[in-house]
């Protein structure tokens, strides 16, 4: 894919009509209005962020696809855009994986484990390593 040297010197590069650019500009203006409108509605909890990011994502894709001419670009350029975003997602997912994983605070009470985090792990048989002598019961917290 690197070797399709153009025949001779000229660079074939088809130039998009102006209407494409103005069209995208209008789309972006609309989406900005939508961003503000969407922010006034309470979708409850974390859904607000998801919706806000989705609208911003659409705007960003429009800019990338048309303004930055990725639609005419080689597959390699498309791949590099996706790789960049993919590794950013890796950073976010694994970092938050750690933080969300922590919220399941285990309280090994009598009836087995009860997690207080948003997602309950359910009852897991009590793992009781045999201390030499079991003194009086008392809540031990992680």
């Amino acid at each position: 894919m690197a070797q399709q040297h153009g025949n001779g010197h000229s660079v074939q590069h088809h130039v998009a009509p102006v209407i494409h650019y103005v069209g995208v500009w209008l789309l972006l203006m609309l989406l900005t209005g939508l961003t503000v409108a969407v922010a006034t509605v309470d979708f409850g909890g974390s859904l607000n962020t998801v919706v806000a990011l989705a609208v911003a994502g659409v705007k960003a894709t429009a800019v990338i696809w048309i303004f930055m001419e990725v639609r005419h670009a080689q597959p390699l350029t498309k791949l590099s855009v996706i790789t960049g975003i993919f590794f950013l997602v890796i950073l976010l997912v694994f970092t938050f994986g750690d933080y969300f994983g922590r919220s399941t605070t285990f309280t090994p009470l009598e009836e087995g484990w009860r997690s207080d985090g948003p997602h309950s792990v359910g009852t897991v048989p009590e793992l009781e390593p045999k201390p030499a002598h079991a003194p009086a019961k008392g809540p031990a917290k992680h």
Binding site: F94, D98, G101, R102
Partner: peptide
């Protein structure tokens, strides 16, 4: 190599699942 960095933090109170 980009998805393994947590092994530097096993003892820093990282969640056991991570």
């Amino acid at each position: 190599s980009f998805i393994v960095w947590g092994h530097h933090m096993f003892t820093s109170g990282q969640s056991v699942y991570a």
